[in-house]
């Protein structure tokens, strides 16, 4: 087993928690991406099991259903030889009336080093980070941030295009309810990309342009300018009421289909954070077509999460005498 280390010149990881991309610098984001690239390189040469987190415990605290992210974090921790414990809302005593705080404190009392938390309420990981001695990794909080998803989207783009600066990236769909959108916006802007958010006017929050993005309600108008198009899932479960008249109408204006692909740049990259609603945001033809990097995203999610766990762990090591 090998312990991988990477250092980007002059940058050291100093943060105790990973709560969002808003609070990271461009250098810190690049450090995570470089560390992930190193893990990917090692995996390619057969170094899939590393000893870096041996003897530590990573708890997956999922207060909201998730298969992909939970599995990805769990596997990332195991690849780094950490012990893992999984708590899901249905299996924990949350359903017996225990508060969020009690649950988290109980888990910490079991000697957990890092807590990966997914919660339907924005800010829940921030509250935990104030309460726990463990490092907190945000695995998606409400409609706020999903930093590892943002990082893996950016990592995937960087893999295909080498750099982010100068690229035009469109985030299409439900911006209002999307934590993926916010993390992408922060990360992409910090690395120098131009970001357009595009969707029905009901799903684009007011003031979003203050984050430095351009706003469009017309996918066909921006299609030709985009190097990358990230198709956000319509979050039916988070919507307070109907935000558009019908799925058919949504797909008509904002769905990515073969006809639109043909009008896009010839090397356009199609991303989707998934799980995708096939036939809504994206037709199977596009999802499974040559422009799609959707499966790369899943693969890259693993090394991004390894990189995050690894960097937070190293900082903990430096902190303790």
């Amino acid at each position: 087993m090998t312990t991988a280390t990477v250092s980007v010149s002059g940058v050291r990881w100093t943060k105790k928690h990973l709560l969002g991309l808003e609070e990271l610098s461009a250098d810190e984001i690049s450090l995570i991406l470089d560390q992930a690239a190193e893990f990917k390189r090692l995996a390619a040469v057969g170094e899939t099991k590393l000893a870096a987190l041996k003897g530590t415990v990573v708890a997956n605290l999922f207060f909201e259903p998730s298969t992909r992210t939970r599995t990805s974090f769990s596997l990332a921790a195991k690849r780094l030889s950490a012990d893992t414990v999984d708590f899901t809302a249905s299996s924990s005593s949350l359903s017996k009336g225990e508060t969020f705080y009690d649950t988290a404190q109980n888990i910490e009392a079991m000697g957990v080093d890092q807590v990966v938390v997914r919660h339907s309420t924005s800010g829940a990981p921030h509250l935990l980070s104030k309460l726990l001695k463990a490092s907190v990794l945000n695995a998606g909080d409400g409609t706020h941030e999903h930093p590892t998803q943002g990082l893996l989207d950016i990592f995937t783009i960087r893999e295909h295009r080498q750099k982010l600066a100068g690229l035009t990236v469109a985030l299409v769909g439900d911006i209002l309810h999307s934590r993926v959108a916010r993390s992408n916006i922060w990360g992409l802007k910090k690395l120098g990309a131009r970001v357009i958010v595009c969707g029905p006017s009901t799903l684009i929050p007011a003031h979003v342009e203050r984050l430095g993005v351009e706003v469009s309600n017309n996918l066909d108008e921006i299609l030709g300018e985009c190097d990358c198009i990230n198709l956000l899932r319509i979050q039916f479960e988070r919507q307070r009421s109907a935000f558009f008249p019908s799925i058919r109408e949504y797909a008509h204006f904002f769905g990515m289909n073969g006809e639109r692909i043909r009008r896009a740049k010839s090397d356009v990259l199609i991303l989707a954070p998934g799980p995708i609603n096939r036939g809504v945001e994206i037709t199977p033809e596009v999802a499974d077509g040559p422009h799609s990097v959707i499966l790369d995203q899943v693969t890259n999610g693993l090394v991004i999460r390894m990189a995050c766990l690894y960097l937070l762990h190293n900082r903990r090591q430096e902190e303790s005498p």
Partner: peptide, 22 residues
């Protein structure tokens, strides 16, 4: 009530930033 259902905070720049229902 229809406009405030499940809202957490004032709808504006910060609700957008924080991802909290406005």
């Amino acid at each position: 009530p229809e406009l405030t259902a499940k809202g957490i905070m004032h709808e504006g720049y910060y609700s957008m930033l924080l991802g909290l229902r406005g």
